[in-house]
Simulated assay, not measured.
Amino acid sequence: MSPAPFPSRDLSMGLAALRDGITSGDIAERVDFAPGVSLIADAPLDVGGTWRSPAGRLLELDISMAGRGNWIALHMALDLPDLADIAFVGFGCTGVGPTQQIIRPCLRSGLDDGGFVDCFLDRHILTRTDAIPHVDALHVPTCRTLPETAPWRELLLFLPTEPLRWHLHDLRMFAA
Rank of each mutant, 00 (worst) to 15 (best):
I63S: 02
D85P: 06
R68V: 09
P54T: 14
P54A: 08
A55K: 07
S53T: 05
F88E: 13
N70L: 12
A55I: 08
S38N: 05
D46A: 15
I63R: 02
R52Q: 11
R57V: 07
D42E: 07
L83F: 08
M65H: 14
L74T: 02
D82R: 11
A87T: 11
N70D: 13
M76Q: 02
H75M: 09
G56R: 10
I86T: 14
L61M: 10
L83R: 14
L58C: 03
L59M: 09
R68Y: 08
P81M: 04
T50P: 07
A77K: 03
I63Q: 03
A55S: 08
D46V: 15
A66C: 07
L59N: 02
W51T: 01
R52D: 06
M65D: 10
W51Q: 01
A87V: 14
E60P: 04
A84E: 15
A66F: 10
G56S: 08
A41N: 13
N70Q: 08
R52N: 11
R52A: 03
M65I: 11
D62M: 12
D85N: 14
L45R: 01
I72R: 02
D79R: 01
G67N: 12
R52H: 13
R68C: 05
M76K: 00
R57Q: 12
I40P: 01
A55F: 05
S53K: 00
L58S: 01
A84D: 13
I40D: 03
I86F: 04
I40Q: 04
S38V: 04
R52M: 08
A41E: 06
M65V: 15
H75Y: 06
D62K: 13
G69E: 15
D85C: 09
P44V: 05
L78R: 00
L59T: 03
W51C: 01
A43T: 15
R68F: 07
A41R: 02
E60G: 04
I63M: 11
I63K: 03
R57C: 12
P81I: 03
M76P: 00
W51A: 00
D42T: 09
I40V: 13
A55Y: 09
P44K: 03
L74G: 00
M76D: 00
V47D: 00
L78H: 01
T50G: 08
P54L: 11
T50R: 08
N70E: 12
G48M: 06
